[in-house]
Structures are given as structure tokens and as C-alpha cells.
């Protein structure tokens, strides 16, 4: 049937935003091959409205395997189920999100169904003639863009970097089918047990899926100074990130770390202060849409990537910027 599949993600019955980003990617590929786009969701307790939104945002069909045993992501069970679906329906292409679950599930599935997989793609296309999926990803710290294909194996599989594409607008005129499938007992793997979930950080952030990230580095000098960045982030409905230096100093916990040993992000707007820009850090922010940097050193690496750079003292610039944005909000200019 050679359909294009995207793997939707849910958390506690709610669809996660990446599910819709994947559909906008998948729609382009399906249209190019003149085929259907299916959203595949493994989960539990997802409302009909949520499933319908998958159709409004690009899917032709939704396969929903609804079972309490799929509520929490357990890679062994989820990969058994997905591999079973792949063997049965033989999709042409599968796109999943490069999230903590997508990046665990897909490499496991690639071995189970014996096909290739390309990680963390930022561009996807279909090759004329062969219909192979052309998968482009940054490698070697973002210094090269490699285009990869899987010529002799099916399906064609890639994970896609969150925030590297925008969801399609909701089109309530779109019609599609919601197909509910039941979970086969033999696919449930009980070896691993989820015994809890911890979320005890005051502000647990998901910097990979934020539209705006405001980050600080060594130049912030101390933890208390991150207050001004939090304020700035709040003005953009964004979140606060940090360089490795700042995390190593204990100013922010590890989930905030941006760069090769932390998170790779592609926000709409990235603002950073007191970050000089190590190769590792730059690799983590290279695909950001707009980058604004504040640093005292005009030769700092970070300025080479900046769309707008301010050479100056962040302790003077950031508070002034906050004040200015406050006035801007009040006066609308």
C-alpha cells in the first residue's frame, strides 16, 4: 500500500505537539508520492477530538491502538507493536520524532524489521524515480549536512528533530478514517516495570519543544543572575536554557543544558547571554531560526551564528531590554 506513516506521541492521553509537526512533514512526502498519510498512535484514553485533530492537521487515516498497557512508554512493548504493524501493513516511509521515546523506539524497531534509520533529520524529500526517502541531517557537530538514503530495505525510516517544522493549520473540512486496533497480548513485554515518575524540579523545562529559549553561560557569573533571563524568557513565553559551563557550576540543572552533551534545539528564537559559543554549544543551536547573542567579546564564536549580535555587558543590556519590552507591551510600540 506504500503509505507514509508518522508516529504520534501522547502523554497522559494528550497528544504531544510533535505529532502535528510530523504530519506536516509527512503530508509533503505523501503528496509527492500521491499516496496516503497515516498517523499511528499507541496509547490509552485519547479523546475522539484529539484523534480528529490528527486528521484536521494532515492525516488521511489514524491507526489508534488503545490499551492501558500502552499508556506509559516502554520501549520493548511499543517496538513489538510497531514492528507487528509494519509487517502487516508494509508502509513505505515512517517518520517519528527525535524525542526521548522516538529515539529509543525507532532504533529498536529498525533492528526488529531489518531496515535502516537516520537520526534527527532536518530535511526530508522523496527521490524522483526510485521514491527513496532522502534524509538530510546535520553531523559532526552540525559542520556537515549529510543526505542519506536506504536503497535496498523497507520501510524508509527517519526521526525528525522537534521544532524543525511547523504544524499545518487545522483544516476542519478534511475527512479521514480513524481505525481502532486492539493490542495483541503476545506483543506485551512485561520484563520492564515502570514504578514511578518524578517531576520535582521547580520548573521542569522541555527546552527541545519550546518556541523561544533564553540561555545563559559562564558570563552570567552566578546563579542569582539567571533571574533576568527568566524574566526575559517569560516575556516571550519561552524557557531558560544554559551552556554546559553554567550547568557544571550548578546554576541550572542538567535538563536545561544545550549542546552536544545536553539538548539539541531548533526554536523560533534563541537568545543567549554570556555564552562564547564552544563548538559543542553551537552544534546544539545551529538549526534555530533566529539567534540573538549578547557578549562582551567581539571575537566570540557565538557572533558568527548570530542574526543579531550585541557587543556589550549583559548586566547592562539584559535589564534594559527587559525594561524596554515592558514599556513596549504597555504602549504597544
Amino acid at each position: 500500500m506504500s503509505y507514509v506513516w508518522t508516529i504520534a506521541e501522547q502523554s497522559k492521553g494528550k497528544l504531544r505537539g510533535v505529532s502535528f509537526e510530523l504530519l506536516s512533514r509527512g503530508r509533503k512526502l505523501a503528496d509527492k508520492m500521491n499516496t496516503q498519510l497515516c498517523s499511528v498512535l499507541l496509547g490509552s484514553n485519547v479523546s475522539d477530538e484529539a484523534l480528529q485533530e490528527l486528521i484536521y492537521r494532515g492525516a488521511d487515516n489514524v491507526y489508534f491502538i488503545d490499551d492501558p498497557r500502552l499508556e506509559n512508554f516502554i520501549v520493548e512493548t511499543h517496538s513489538n507493536v510497531l514492528s507487528d504493524l509494519i509487517r502487516e501493513y508494509k508502509p513505505h516511509t515512517i517518520l517519528a520524532a527525535a524525542t526521548s521515546s522516538g529515539r529509543s523506539l525507532m532504533p529498536y524497531v529498525a533492528i526488529q524489521v531489518n531496515t535502516g534509520l537516520t537520526a534527527d533529520c532536518t530535511e526530508l524529500d522523496i527521490e524522483e524515480g526510485t521514491k527513496h526517502l532522502l534524509q538530510t541531517r546535520p553531523a559532526i557537530g552540525g559542520n556537515i549536512m549529510a543526505t542519506i538514503k536506504t536503497p535496498n530495505h523497507d520501510p524508509q525510516m527517519a526521526t525528525v528533530r522537534p521544532k524543525s517544522s511547523r504544524p499545518l493549520p487545522e483544516d476542519t473540512g478534511r475527512v479521514g478514517k480513524i481505525i481502532r486496533l486492539s493490542l495483541k497480548d503476545e506483543l506485551v513485554d512485561n520484563r520492564v516495570e515502570m514504578i514511578g515518575f518524578r517531576k520535582d524540579l521547580e520548573e521542569f523545562v522541555n527546552i527541545e519543544e519550546a518556541e523561544v529559549v533564553v540561555a545563559g553561560g559562564k558570563g552570567m557569573k552566578k546563579q542569582e543572575n539567571f533571574g533576568m533571563l527568566k524574566e526575559l524568557a517569560k516575556r516571550f513565553d519561552g524557557v531558560v536554557g544554559a551552556s554546559r559551563d553554567a550547568v557544571d557550576r550548578g546554576w541550572l540543572p542538567y535538563p536545561h543544558q544545550i549542546g552536544l552533551s545536553g539538548k539539541t534545539i531548533s526554536p523560533k528564537l534563541y537568545i543567549c547571554a554570556g555564552i562564547s559559543g564552544s563548538i559543542q554549544h553551537l552544534a546544539g543551536i545551529k538549526t534555530s531560526e533566529t539567534i540573538i547573542a549578547v557578549n562582551t567579546d567581539p571575537d566570540a564564536n557565538i557572533f558568527q551564528l548570530a542574526d543579531f549580535g550585541i557587543i556589550g555587558n549583559l548586566f547592562e543590556v539584559i535589564p534594559k531590554l527587559n525594561q524596554r519590552l515592558e514599556n513596549y507591551k504597555k504602549e504597544g510600540k
Binding site: R16, R191, E193, I195, F197, R198, K199, E209
Partner: peptide, 12 residues
């Protein structure tokens, strides 16, 4: 470490 916090797993 996952997007929403920390998943606690007991693995054999």
C-alpha cells in the same frame, strides 16, 4: 530523563 520529568523503571 524524558520531556516531562524522570521515568522510574525497574529493569531485570
Amino acid at each position: 530523563l524524558v520531556e516531562e520529568g524522570y521515568q522510574i523503571l525497574k529493569m531485570p
